[in-house]
Design a protein around this nucleic acid. Structure first.
Length: 306
DNA sequence: TATCCGTGGTG
DNA sequence: TCACCAAGGAT
C-alpha cells in the first residue's frame, strides 16, 4: 500500500464569490453555439439537449442544423414517419433517442397544442426526457429556476465545493441537494449560473486533464486547496464494445439507414457473420425497440408507422 | 441500483 | 496504442 499524504484541510468556498467568478467566465468565454442564439425556439433547445446526451458538441453541430432546417417545429417532425428521424439521426449514436424525440414531438402536438411545454413536470413526462433534460429545457429555453445537474456540473461541484477529484459513480441525493443549495436565488441569475457551470466543466474543469492553470475559481476550489488528491472511489468499469450486442445492433441499423428502401435478410446477414445467433437476437431487439419494422414480404425497413 | 443502449475522438 | 470519455434515459 503506497503512502499518500493526507489531503490538506480546507473549508468549502464562499458561494457568492463562486457565483461572481463563474458568471464572469461565462460572459467572457462562452462558446458561440447555435442553440444558444437569442430567439432559438424551445423546440431547438429541446432537440439540442436530446442530441447532446452522451454525445460531444462537435458531432452534434451539423446534425442539429440539418434537423432544425428539416423539422423546424414539433409538428413537422410528428408528421414524418419515425424511420425518417432514425435515418437523419445519422451516426449520432444511441438511435433510440431519435425514436423518442419523434415520440416526444407527437406528444407535444397531441397534448400541448404543438408547443413545447415550459413546465418541468410536463417536460419530464415526455419520452426520452429525464430529470436533467427537463431542467435544461425549462432553464435554457424558458429561463426558469431549476438545478441543472449534468456530468459537467457534478464534476465542478465535486471538485470546487466538496473537494473530491470525481463525483460519485451515479447521481446521489447529496449532489442534487448541493446543486440546489448553490443555485442563486434570483431567477435570471440562476439560469445563467446553470449554463455557466456546465460551460466551466466542459471547457476547463474537464474529466481527464483539467486546465486548472486557466480556471477562474482555482483559488477558491476546495479540491485544489486540498492539494488535488487523487480519486478515492472505485475504478470505473469501462464500456465494453468489441463483439457486443451494441456493436451488432449498430452495424445492422447502419445498413438500414444507408439503404434507400427495404432490405432483404441476406443483406442484413452479410452485415454480421461472426455469430448468426447473436445477429438474430439483435435484429429481434431492434424490432422490439421499434427501430426496425419487418414487412410481410420478409424484408426489413426503418419504421414507417407508430 | 446496475446494466444496457452507439459512435468516434483522444490523452 | 487503447482505455477513457462525451449536456442521460429507461428499466
Amino acid at each position: 500500500m503506497p503512502h499518500r499524504p493526507d489531503p490538506a484541510p480546507a473549508p468549502p468556498p464562499e458561494i457568492g464569490a463562486l457565483h461572481e467568478r463563474v458568471l464572469r467566465f461565462y460572459a467572457e468565454q462562452a462558446r458561440d453555439l447555435p442553440w444558444r442564439t437569442p430567439g432559438v425556439s424551445p423546440w431547438g433547445v429541446l432537440v439540442s439537449e436530446i442530441m447532446l446526451q452522451q454525445t460531444p458538441v462537435l458531432r452534434v453541430l451539423p446534425r442539429w442544423r440539418e434537423w432544425m432546417e428539416r423539422w423546424p417545429t414539433p409538428g413537422d417532425l410528428a408528421a414524418a414517419p419515425p424511420g425518417d428521424a432514425v435515418r437523419h439521426w445519422d451516426r449520432l449514436g444511441y438511435p433510440r433517442r431519435a425514436l423518442r424525440l419523434h415520440a416526444a414531438a407527437v406528444a407535444i402536438v397531441e397534448q400541448h397544442g404543438g408547443e413545447v411545454p415550459a413546465d418541468h413536470a410536463a417536460l419530464l413526462a415526455l419520452p426520452g426526457i429525464g430529470v436533467y433534460t427537463a431542467a435544461a429545457v425549462a432553464v435554457f429555453a424558458f429561463g426558469q429556476r431549476h438545478a441543472v445537474v449534468d456530468t459537467n456540473v457534478r464534476r465542478v461541484l465535486a471538485r470546487a465545493v466538496t473537494g473530491d477529484a470525481e463525483p460519485a459513480p451515479a447521481l446521489t441525493r447529496a449532489e442534487s441537494r448541493l446543486a440546489e443549495e448553490v443555485l442563486p436565488d434570483d431567477r435570471p441569475t440562476a439560469a445563467r449560473w446553470s449554463i455557466a457551470v456546465m460551460e466551466l466543466g466542459a471547457l476547463v474543469c474537464t474529466a481527464r486533464s483539467p486546465r486548472c492553470d486557466a480556471c477562474p475559481i482555482a483559488d477558491l476550489c476546495r479540491w485544489t486547496r486540498r492539494g488535488r488528491p487523487a480519486s478515492t472511489g472505485p475504478a470505473r468499469r469501462g464500456q465494453a464494445w468489441a463483439g457486443t450486442d451494441r456493436q451488432v445492433r449498430g452495424r445492422l441499423l447502419a445498413v438500414l439507414r444507408e439503404a434507400p428502401g427495404p432490405v432483404t435478410p441476406d443483406i442484413l446477414q452479410a452485415a454480421w457473420t461472426t455469430d448468426p445467433v447473436q445477429r438474430e437476437r439483435c435484429l429481434d431487439s431492434l424490432v422490439a425497440d421499434g427501430l426496425v419494422e419487418p414487412l410481410e414480404d420478409g424484408t426489413f425497413t426503418l419504421p414507417r408507422t407508430r
